[in-house]
Design a protein around this nucleic acid. Structure first.
Lengths: 198, 198
DNA sequence: GCAACGAGTGTCAGTGACTGACGACTGTGA
DNA sequence: TCACAGTCGTCAGTCACTGACACTCGTTGC
């Protein structure tokens, strides 16, 4: 903190800065005491603002935990749009996820700090699922924009996201190989598993 | 209010009966005023009990909306376990979902009444996603019990569930064909889409 | 300089979800 | 008749979240 000299309200200047302090304070407190044992007022106090200000920046006690999802969404939908015409939906998604690897790696430190908190609190798991569902909806739109028919677009977006999630999980358990490798491996597993149908 | 005859505490006898009345009252009120505009006290009042009793039967204002998930879970995991040994994971899941069709059809009237409420309220969508995630976890366990290796089991359970969900959506949009048909069609789409990989 | 203005914040009051503690009632079996 | 367990009502309290209002500060136009 650059908390300094004189009085109580020396800190707040910029709205974005307050927002960042609130996110950091929330993460710290959730790690220290757990999500249930920390109140919105606690978070606000550590960030040097009022509870009311907390709820002006974040709609939720959960929402403060999930940020940067828009960045990933924009990157993925852009990548899907940029894939060569004629590419089938799942290969297009696989390519898009490969494009996202640098972003994922850049966010890794924060992601790793968040992980144990999410794992320990059902309320955050629910919100996490909702965020993922939002990504799937965006990918569905991106596929439709490429001319993929409605029912297939939704199915592929969802299945592609699951495969990506599986790759992330394996990567977390085995950092020996990089995310690109795990991604290809997971999509290959999907192909083999689906081949057994019919 | 349909508050009736003699006195205040004429109604409650059995715990299960109260539970059912609360669920029905909640569904009615959510349909009439919407989820946000109905309080837990409202639901309890219509069911003829206290708000406190409401929270003794349901942990949540959301939870009262989702019941019978355990029934579907048990049926599905049992069906997966009963599939002939040697069957590959996704075909096993497809068979399990076919087994569940009668249950789904039986619950259709309630499901259809719930649908518009869920579609209109994000809080219920989140809980719905969490319930589905619970089913996926159960299916993952069921696959592991069949000897499917960990990372593949989770991926297949998730993908199988998505395909099932896709079939349900198509069925809702087109009741001309039965759910069995939509199920086979969705799994076939999955196979074709995955075949385009590599 | 100065007034108007908008963004960000603090304060206060209020609603509603949810919890813990306690006591009352009712049916069941010893 | 006497425990005993299950279900409920009552009461008090915490906390998430919201609306209304006033204030402060930096910017813009004059």
């Amino acid at each position: 903190m650059t908390d300094d000299c004189d009085s109580v309200r020396a800190v707040p200047r910029n709205g974005d800065e307050v927002r960042l302090r609130l996110q950091e304070a929330a993460l710290e407190l959730y790690l220290e005491r757990g999500y249930d044992k920390t109140t919105a007022a606690d978070i606000a106090a550590r960030a040097g603002v009022t509870e009311r200000t907390f709820f002006r920046h974040f709609t939720d006690k959960r929402e403060v935990f999930f940020d940067g999802e828009a960045e990933l969404r924009d990157l993925l939908t852009g990548a899907v749009a940029a894939v060569p015409a004629g590419t089938r939906p799942l290969p297009a998604l696989r390519a898009a996820f490969h494009q996202a690897v640098p972003l994922i790696e850049r966010h890794l430190p924060v992601t790793e700090r968040r992980a144990p908190v999410i794992a320990a609190t059902p309320a955050l798991q629910e919100r996490s699922l909702a965020k993922t569902a939002g990504l799937v909806a965006a990918l569905t739109d991106a596929l439709r924009a490429r001319g993929v028919a409605e029912p297939l677009a939704a199915l592929c977006a969802q299945v592609g996201m699951d495969t990506y999630s599986a790759a992330i999980r394996r990567w977390a358990a085995d950092r020996g190989d990089d995310l690109h490798t795990h991604l290809d491996r997971a999509f290959n597993d999907l192909r083999l598993a689906a081949n057994a149908l019919k």
